[in-house]
């Protein structure tokens, strides 16, 4: 039996710290870490500035008063109510459409058809949102020579549909096939099987997709510029006329040369960011926990 271990031979020893391979290995760990920090800095800086400037600009007027028709002052209540109305209508349009398309692609369509529709949806997701605005402008604004909130809602819906469709599809794929087979074997019709088994089981996930689509629509500005236009007047329920939205309000006020208006932009940005991030964090954190199980 060997008594004690012999000294470590040189060829197994850790490098002296100057050997090129070891140096490269250690440096790259630091470099990749540094890049991660660099990637996160903008988020931290942005959150910090929006929070600091935004909270400072918050006041009761901002959420209760419309902007002054002339001059400076007032609040963003037109924008807040406008965003809620347009996003709500867009959701009403987009959910049935996105859901149906998602169900069709994952449950009913042939392999080929599904591929074509999925491809179209992926391309739609990649289309710059401003072009969706231009597209809707050509048939819902131009013929009537009137910017209107309905066109804004449709534009937002066009942006939401492929997102809802793709998440619905992905979620339904995860629903175990034997659940469906069990239902079909019981003699339950296909439509009932799909709706009461697949969609019901996948509903929490589908809801996640809808919420993310809502968050995305709420933050969209570009497609509203040439549809809903924005407005300084309070518009409740008249979708035939221009309507303001929080993103439009921020965009307009950020471009003005008056610090008071810039401040309002920060305040509105804080509200918008808060809403969007809360939805995202709640929804994503839930789905994170869901997948880890």
């Amino acid at each position: 039996m060997t008594a004690a271990a012999v000294p470590i031979p040189d060829h197994l020893r850790r490098a002296s710290g100057r050997e090129r391979r070891a140096v490269v290995d250690r440096s790259m760990r630091i470099v990749t870490l540094a890049c991660t920090v660099i990637a996160i800095i903008p988020l931290v800086a942005l959150l910090a500035f929006v929070t600091i400037n935004g909270v400072a600009a918050l006041n009761v007027d901002l959420i209760t008063k419309p902007p002054r028709a002339l001059g400076i002052g007032g609040g963003a209540v037109t924008a807040i109510t406008g965003s809620i109305q347009m996003v709500a209508l867009a959701t009403l349009i987009a959910v049935p459409v996105g859901l149906s398309a998602g169900v069709y692609v994952s449950e009913l369509a042939g392999h080929r058809t599904a591929g074509v529709i999925r491809f179209a949806a992926d391309v739609l997701v990649g289309i710059p949102s401003i072009l969706v605005g231009v597209f809707v402008f050509t048939f819902l604004v131009l013929p009537f020579k009137q910017y209107n909130a309905f066109a804004g809602s449709v534009a937002l819906a066009v942006i939401m549909v492929p997102v809802i469709m793709r998440t619905t599809e992905e979620i339904l794929k995860l629903v175990p096939g034997d659940l469906r087979e069990a239902s079909l074997a019981l003699g339950i019709r296909r439509w009932r099987t799909v709706l009461s088994v697949a969609v019901r089981v996948g509903w929490p996930g589908i809801l996640t997709g809808i919420m993310l689509a809502v968050a995305r629509a709420a933050g969209e500005t570009a497609p509203l510029i040439m549809t809903a236009l924005g407005s300084r007047l309070l518009n409740i329920g008249d979708f035939g006329r221009p309507m303001d939205a929080l993103p439009l309000f921020i965009y307009q006020n950020a471009r003005q040369p008056y610090p008071a208006l810039n401040e309002q932009a920060w305040g509105a940005a804080f509200l918008l960011l808060l809403a969007v991030l809360v939805i995202n964090i709640l929804v994503r954190a839930r789905s994170l926990r869901g997948t880890s199980r």
Partner: peptide, 17 residues
């Protein structure tokens, strides 16, 4: 032990081992 040298000795580099 590899040839009598302890491969878990802190001085051993697992990459070289």
């Amino acid at each position: 032990l590899l040839d009598g040298a302890n491969v878990y000795d802190p001085a051993v580099d697992p990459v070289r081992l």
